[in-house]
Design a binder for these strands. Structure first.
Lengths: 211, 211, 211, 211
DNA sequence: GATGAATGAGGGTTCATTCAT
DNA sequence: GATGAATGAACCCTCATTCAT
C-alpha cells in the first residue's frame, strides 16, 4: 500500500470517527441540551472511550462548532436544491418551502439543540446569522427587487420582505419545537398553505368581473 | 405603625427583592444561558449574598419558573391591550402587531433567556406552549372561522392560519435574537409592513376597473 | 419591686428560656441527631426566633454541653435515690437497677443523642466518663472491697467488678437504642432478672442437703 | 498477559482502592464522626483526589454502608471462630469472650465510628440490629433452652439471658470507647473475669460439705 | 431583649480534561 | 491510537452566626 493510500484511509477513518461522535452528540444534545450532556455520555453513545473524543475534538465546545458547520453544509445544499426548482413564482415558493421544511424535519433534533445553544451562546448565534441567514437574505434580495421593478410583486420593502419568509419558516419550526403537535401532524400541508397565503394574503379573492 | 402597615411593607420588601433577583437572573440568563450562570453571579449582580437568593427562591430552577410566570403575566397583559384595539380587520392586526412587537422588545432579554432554555429543557417548552401559545390559538380560532363564514377572509385552514401569525412574529423575534440588526433598527416599520403583507399578500394589486 | 426581686425574676426567666430551648433541643437531637438538627428547627420548636437562641447559649455546641450537665444532674439524683434503698445485697441491686432503668427510660431520647455525640466527639465522651462514670466507680469500689473482705462476695477483681455492673446496664441500653424491641417491652422484668443473674450466675443451684 | 489475568488485576486494584478509602474513612469517622468528616479529608488521608472517591463509592453514605458490611463480615468470622471452640460450658464462654474481645479490639476504630453513627442515624442502627445482633440472639436461644432443660443452667428467661451476654460485652466496649483506660489495660484479664462471674455470680461459693 | 433577614464559609458532588498504560 | 482512571476546579445549596431594627 502506498503512503498516499494509507493517508487516504487514515483520513477516511478520522472522518468516520468524527461523524460517529457528532451523531452521538447530536442525539444527546437534542435530548438533554449541550450543558446537560456529558462527554462520558457522548463517548458511550459513540461506543468510544472518553479520552478518545479528545483525539478528534479539541474540547466540548468544538463539538458544538462542528455541529454548526454540519448544519451550514446541510443548509447550503438545501438552498441549492431549492434553486433547482423553477416555474411560476408561487410554485417556486411552494417547492422551496417543501424542500426547506422536509429538510428541517430531518435535522429537527440537531436544530433544537443548536438553536437553544445559539440563543444562549451569543457567539454561536452570531456565527449562524452571519454564515447562514445573512447570505440567504443576500441571495433573495436582488430577485425581489427585480420582481418589484417588473410589477410582479407589490412594492414592498425588499429588506423586510426577504426577512418575512425565513421568519415564517423559522417561527413555524419554533412552534413545533415548543410542542405544537398539530403543526407536526400537518407538516405535509404547510407548503400548500403558506405559498398561497404569502402571495394572495388573507383577504378574499376579489370578484372576477365577468365570470 | 400598625401591624397591617408593617405586613404591607414586608410584602413590598419581599416583592422588591424577588424583582431585584429576577432582573439580575434575566440579564445573566440572556447573556450566558441558565446552565452557565451561577447563583453567585446572580447574587452579585443583584447586590446580595449567595445565600440570600435562597431566602426568596427555593433553588435555581425556581428562578426559571418564576421567569416563566413573569412572561405569562406580561403576555396576558399584552393580549388584553390588543383586544382593546378595534376597527377594520387590517387595522386591528396592525395595532395588535404594534402592541405585540413593542412588548416583545421590552421583554427581549427575558425572552432570549427563556426561549433558549425552553429549547433545551423540554419541560419548560411544553409549559410555555400549553400556558401561553395554545390559549392564544384558541382565542383566535373562532374569530377566524367567523370571518371565513362571512366571506371576509379567504377560505384557508383555520388551524394553520391561526398559527401563521404568531409564527411570523416569533420568527422575526428569533432572527433578531440571532443577530439581525436590520430588524432591530426597523422595528417601528414592522406593523405597517406585516399587516398589509398578511392581508394582501405579495402579489401585485389587481388593476382597478375605472382608473 | 426591689432590685433583688427584679434580679430574681430575671434569673427565673432566663432559666425558663434555657429549659425551653434545651427541651426543644433534646427532642430534636434525639430525633435527628445533633449535626442534622438546625438552630432554626430548635428555635421553631421552642417558639423563639433563631437569634434568641444565641442570647442564652454561646453557640450550638454549648447546647450539647448544657444537655450533658443536665444529664449529670439527673444521674446524680438517680444515685442518691438508689442509695436510699437498703436491705439485703441482692435486693439492693434490684432496687438500684429498677431506679436506674426507669430513669434511663425517661431520658432515652436524650441519652441516644448524647451517647451518639459522645462516641463521635471525644471531648464530650471524656467529660461524661470523668464526671459521671468514674465517680460512680469510685463510689462502688470501697463497698465491694469490704464485702469481699467480709466473705459476702467472691474474691473477684474489684476494679473489674465495679465496671461489670454499669457495663451490663449500658449494654442493655445500647441494645435497646439499636432497636431491640424485646428489651423495650420487658423492661419491667429486667431488675428481677439481672439481680439474681449477677449474684447467683447462670449455674444451676446446688442441690440442698436435706430439703 | 491474558484478559483473565488483566481482569483479575483490575479487580484487585479496585479492591485495594476501596480498602484504602475505607481505612481512611474508618479512622476519620472514629476521630471526628461521620458528619464532621469531609470527603476531601478522606481523599487526602487515602492519598487520592476528591473526585476519585466517587469512582469507588456512589456517595458519602455509601462509605458508611460499606463499613457496616465490613463489620458484618468481620462479625461473621468472629462467630465462626467462636463456634469452633468447644469443651465445658464455662470454658467455652471464656474462649468465646476472648475471641470476641480480641476481635473488637482490632475493630475498635470501626466500631467507634459506626456505633456513634448508628445512635444518630436510626436506619443504620436498625440495620445493624437486624443483620448482626438479632441473628446472634437466634443462634444462642436454642442452646440456652436446651441447657435449661437438661438442668445445666438455672431456669432463667432465655430471651433475656441471650441478651445479657452481648449486653455485657457491648457495655464494656462502650465504657472503653468513652475513655475508660483501666478496661483498655486489663483487656487480657476480661475473659477470665467475666466467664466465672457469669456462671457463678457474685455470691461467695457455698462451703463444701467435707473439706 | 427579641427578631429574622442577611451573610458567606464550607460541604457533597459533577464532569471536562489529562495522561500513563 | 485508544483507553479510562485520576484529577480538581467549580457548582449548588445549607446553615451557624451576626446585627440592624
Amino acid at each position: 500500500m502506498t503512503d498516499k493510500q494509507a493517508d487516504y484511509l487514515q483520513e477516511q477513518l478520522i472522518a468516520t470517527r468524527r461523524t460517529q461522535i457528532l451523531e452521538a452528540a447530536t442525539t444527546l444534545f437534542a435530548e438533554k441540551g449541550f450543558a446537560r450532556t456529558t462527554i462520558k455520555e457522548i463517548a458511550q453513545a459513540a461506543g468510544l472511550a472518553e479520552g478518545t473524543i479528545y483525539l478528534y475534538f479539541k474540547n466540548k465546545d468544538a463539538l458544538l462548532l462542528a455541529l454548526l458547520d454540519q448544519l451550514n453544509e446541510s443548509e447550503r445544499r438545501a438552498v441549492d436544491l431549492a434553486q433547482a426548482g423553477t416555474g411560476g413564482l408561487e410554485d417556486f415558493m411552494r417547492s422551496y418551502l417543501a424542500h426547506r421544511l422536509t429538510h428541517m424535519q430531518q435535522d429537527m433534533p440537531l436544530l433544537q439543540a443548536l438553536l437553544g445553544e445559539m440563543l444562549i451562546n451569543n457567539k454561536l448565534g452570531q456565527q449562524y446569522y452571519e454564515q447562514i441567514i445573512a447570505p440567504t437574505y443576500a441571495l433573495g434580495l436582488e430577485p425581489f427587487k427585480e420582481l418589484i421593478a417588473r410589477g410582479q410583486m407589490r412594492d414592498l420593502d425588499p429588506a423586510l420582505t426577504v426577512r418575512a419568509i425565513p421568519a415564517l419558516v423559522l417561527g413555524l419550526l419554533m412552534l413545533q419545537l415548543l410542542g405544537d403537535t398539530e403543526l407536526e401532524n400537518r407538516r405535509a400541508d404547510l407548503p400548500d398553505f403558506i405559498a398561497p397565503l404569502l402571495f394572495k394574503g388573507l383577504n378574499p379573492e376579489p370578484p372576477h368581473d365577468h365570470d
